[in-house]
Design a protein around this nucleic acid. Sequence first.
RNA 1: GGGACCAUAGGGUAGCUUGGUCGAUCCUUUGGGCUUUGGGAGCCUGAGACUCCGGUUCGAAUCCGGGUGGUCCCA
Length: 473
Amino acid sequence: MENFSEWFHNILEEAEIIDSRYPIKGMSVWLPNGFKIRKNILELLKKLLDKDHEEVLFPLLVPEDELAKEGIHVKGFEDEVYWVTHGGQKELNKKLAIRPTSETAMYPMFSLWVRSHIDLPMKFYQIVNTFRYETKHTRPLIRVREITTFKEAHTVHSTAKEADEQVKIAIGIYKEFFDLLGIPYLLSKRPVWDKFPGADYTMAFDTFLPDGKTLQIGTVHNLGQTFAKTFDITFETEDNAHEHVYQTCYGLSDRVIASVIGVHGDEKGLHLPPKIAPNQITIIPILFKKGSEEVIAKCEEIKLALELNGIRVNIDDRDIRPGKKFYQWELNGSPLRLELGPRDLKNNKAILVRRDNLEKIEIDLDSEYSEKINELFDDIYNNMKKTAWDKIKDSVIIIDNLKEVNNVIANGKVVSFSWCGEEECGKAIEEITDVDILGTQNENNEFSQNLNGKKCIHCENEAKYTGLMAKTY
RNA sequence: GGGACCAUAGGGUAGCUUGGUCGAUCCUUUGGGCUUUGGGAGCCUGAGACUCCGGUUCGAAUCCGGGUGGUCCCA
């Protein structure tokens, strides 16, 4: 994978995920195969959220005055908003914004919905498309003008502590979600100058792509009472006082799908974790003129048996050479393939081939092969996950001199440094190195350094955090 | 925000400098037919393109201006 951009662009087309030739900049068409992957990913996500969130659906349009209410927030988005200005030939009295995100659509309604402490907490989410007029060059799934898959959750709480707690809960949900996809991540608290417009603080997940750049794949914001005050969301406490609520919001987008493709993909093409692969196992009958009916009948029988065990199966019985099918299904990321020809039929065997390492495994068709296949799925998933995590762990390089930054970045790695955490100092570091600070590690994990006695890499005051720097998308 | 480059079948390309030979090259893709099929088959026969608008010219894929779309670099 010499040139990731090129590889990524090709794979989207060859594996029929999206068609990026739609004639509007930054907008693409989801193709059936891509749509199935998207659907499977969303199902995993919904299962996690539905435990204690309610799914809702808000309108696409936001009245101008509501959008403009929260000054800091609107400033963060004002250059990116698409506007609806006409109804037919007639100019509208009040312009309507196409949501770049839905805080300003939702919160006026929250103000009506929240009456007393009994209503709280409220936890909603929706999965919608949003629009942002990106001026930088767009990239399919990564920087788009229509975010087709924007999962945004919004929660409302009666105390700051509970909102803070919700941030941790949301982080936990996202970790679980990324784990299901086998996607490794760096979890950082974003620097204050890079937080969500209007938030108290922002926690963000970044993954690591083969070209050495990090990709933000999820964010969790503690909104404090900023929006509550702007949109007058108050509740009556147990002792009849009226107070503003505390809020959080957290989101994921198409970028999750981009990261599944980018993180797991290889020279052979797409490589999908079994949980989300549209075809978990592809059966390829080896057909000769003689005896092809028997072979296909056996394949159908196996398909049925596997489907009864909840496995997604397809049979490729096209009249082309088997070798071509092997290449195509490897390109499409099908985790396992099953080959069955007349020779196997006679011995009552079949050959399984793993997409991750191309290992061939003979199975006895009289045995409980569904079990064996499910075990292989687990093994493939674990292998993919481990490979991806090993790579990101190897890519975070601890430095103790700012001069090393550009060297590390040029080698396609992520920089870990000790930092005082001060804004002035951080901005100076970004200025000197011309590299973005992702943020700080706020919990003990494999990416936090032991800071005992360490000094900030720039100002030499006491180091309070492990900071990360990377070339970003 | 500033700049550079690019646009030819579904995908990738040659042709453009020096306008006419282009009725546009090659690979891939693709319809039909026959022989085939255990890692990208072969033969026969078809299909498919000069980004859009305007200009220069006897004549534009080729030159000029603009739109749209794409790629990359810098802030």
